[in-house]
């Protein structure tokens, strides 16, 4: 069993909203000084899903793959420290400013290059663009079925069984392998690597591939969804805080205001 987990490095999302800045000219987010990029939350959980399969069957091989700048190596290393076997970094100037479909084309080409892949895992969405489409695009490109929003992923006898979380239901979906599964936070927290594992990760094999290495040229990657503007929306509500020396007084003030506003 060979599992590829696709991970994306993103600006740290866990910052106060007031320090979130956009360069409108460049249509890019400007991370606050000194805040390092991180692995997109759901992607680390996708690595966890792969590791649980490997826990059950030690012969499982897990490759962590990322498309991004040279720093994306850290996102891969994080997966290797969690217990993955190999890394693949896809980096090339022509990969800058791809749309999701372009990204999926590169990842799918690398997956095809690996050749023997049974299962591809991705996060349900990347926490920067929040589109939630890359996993599905990869599935379409490699001609495999996709199952989204997994809270558990198990494999047996050439099939994958996914518990799929929806807001009002949990579905059990079965699919033949090879397949693509996108993973949601309900799967649980990603394991925390020990120092020893972090050290060992630096010695694990990591391939670095450019467009030509996966047989793609820039023309095939022209965006179909174009980004025309990126900005921070203005919110201008003014909160009216309830005065009072005790919680009872504050609560009574609120109850009266709600009544005046015909809200209760």
């Amino acid at each position: 069993m060979h599992i590829v987990v696709c991970v994306k490095q993103v600006p740290d999302w866990d910052i106060p909203p007031s320090s979130f800045k956009v360069d409108e000219g460049a249509k890019k987010v400007v991370p606050p000084a000194g805040v390092a990029p991180v692995v997109s939350q759901f992607d680390a959980i996708a690595v966890e899903a792969a590791m649980r399969i490997k826990d059950a069957d030690a012969s499982t091989k897990v490759t962590v793959m990322s498309l991004g700048p040279a720093t994306a190596r850290d996102a891969i290393k994080n997966g290797l420290a969690m217990g993955a076997d190999e890394g693949a970094l896809l980096t090339d100037d022509v990969f800058n400013n791809l749309d999701s479909l372009g990204t999926a084309n590169v990842l799918a080409a690398a997956i095809k290059k690996l050749g023997d892949v049974d299962l591809v895992l991705t996060g349900r969405q990347a926490v920067d663009w929040d589109l939630g489409v890359t996993g599905t695009y990869i599935a379409e490109i490699i001609g495999a079925p996709v199952v989204t929003f997994a809270k558990s992923v198990t494999v047996s006898g050439g099939n994958v069984t996914v518990e799929r979380v929806l807001p009002d239901a949990v579905e059990t979906v079965e699919s033949p392998l090879p397949a693509v599964v996108t993973v949601s936070n309900e799967l649980g927290e990603p394991r925390y690597p020990k120092l020893q594992q972090i050290m060992a990760a630096t010695k694990k094999p990591m391939n670095t591939w450019a467009a030509a290495d996966v047989g793609l040229d820039a023309g095939a990657l022209a965006p179909k969804l174009t980004l025309e503007a990126l900005y921070v929306p203005v919110v201008d509500t003014k909160v009216e805080l309830m005065e009072g020396d005790t919680p009872e007084e504050q609560a009574m003030a609120l109850a009266r205001r709600l009544k005046e506003a015909k809200l209760i």
Binding site: W13, D128, W129, A222, P223, E228, A229, L230, Y231, V232
Partner: peptide, 15 residues
Amino acid sequence: PAYGGNARAVNGFST
């Protein structure tokens, strides 16, 4: 909305 709702993205289509 993008970036968890912190930003707004305007998109067009070439297809």
